[in-house]
Design a protein around this nucleic acid. Structure first.
Lengths: 186, 186
DNA sequence: AAAAGAATAGGACATTTGTCCTATAAAAGA
DNA sequence: TCTTTTATAGGACAAATGTCCTATTCTTTT
């Protein structure tokens, strides 16, 4: 987690020590839920090892995956964390997972402790925004097949590590349709 | 613009005076472009009067609208503003429009001038994130018809003020299909 | 290792959505 | 105001995508 913060801002020893004191740890077994819908998300996790996915339900009761997170990435229901309203997402471990955790109180301490943390918070939020924006654009301008193709070219990891059923809803299509698309690509 | 900032943070007289010095003004005629794709977006505008839309092109050359902004809202290619890379969006006035403008340098001055601005920047970015997240969820979990219905129930203003051709791509459907949906809703 | 359970691919058919086109209505410009 | 341009609605048909289902393969559990 330190490394990511340092890539955004040049922190001093003391600042990073403060961070060390605030981080806690947790492991998840495959399939375990870190957050369930209707809870308020009060922590941001950083993945040391493993894969998480976040998903919500549609009105038919199907699970719709809205994102994945891999090693050295952050995960949370950011919307719930920000608004302090109930999350509509569930967050689940797709593999054995090791986490570092920064909870709301810890983050608030960091923010209060100085300008640098405040600025880092803003910049990381900005980057999350940009990522989400890219995903939004891909939904507006590409077909399901094109989104798959894009993943295939630029994020091989998704296709190798994520079960097809989850990948399908992540791409905004049904598993049946994903199967057709994969057949066409081969 | 002040009002929005004050709704997020309790600013002093001096802080708001600094803001006053940094804001500039501009008006746009109907149809005029504020930003074109391949420019770097270096300013965030606040709408005093009028409506803006932001759109990009798909590979067929169709315009795809990705958002609208109304009175008392901010608009920019935030992705380009943040990354300082070329925008893929165009921003266009849908009506005569009056703007307040905060450019990159002005915003950086604010950020440097103190903790409060830094924090406000973070919080407004967070809110933009949450809005975008909602839109993303609506694309993953709803059909085009359901997104129209949602707009019809909760954002009447869009249906009253925005030409159907723009609304269609904003909803992720064709004008032909929007026409079908509208017929069904009546 | 065997048995049970879950994930994937893909056939047949249904539904949704898009494409192309035309008529009418509305808006902009002369 | 009249003329020209642009926007909208909707018919007919085509293409894309979804639903339901089964066979097969891959995982997990005992």
């Amino acid at each position: 987690m330190k490394t990511v913060f340092q890539s955004v801002q040049d922190f001093s020893e003391e600042e990073l020590n403060l961070l060390d004191d605030l981080i806690t740890f947790r492991t998840l077994k495959k399939g375990e839920l870190l957050l369930t819908e209707n809870q308020i998300c009060n922590e941001i996790v950083f993945i040391k090892k493993g894969i998480l996915r976040s998903f919500f339900m549609n009105h038919k009761g199907d699970e719709i995956t809205n994102c994945f997170a891999f090693e050295n990435e952050f995960m949370a229901s950011f919307a719930s964390f920000i608004t302090e309203e109930k999350a509509e997402e569930n967050i689940q471990a797709l593999t054995e997972t090791e986490l570092q955790i920064l909870d709301r109180k810890a983050l608030e301490k960091l923010y209060k402790s100085g300008f640098n943390w405040q600025e880092t918070g803003r910049k990381l939020t900005e980057l999350e925004f940009v990522n989400l924006h890219k995903r939004m654009v891909s939904f507006q301008k590409l077909s399901g097949a094109e989104r798959y193709e894009e993943l295939y070219q630029n994020h091989q990891k998704y296709i190798q590590l994520i079960p097809m059923q989850y990948l399908a809803s992540y791409l905004g299509i049904t598993p049946r349709h994903l199967s057709r698309i994969r057949k066409a690509v081969l």
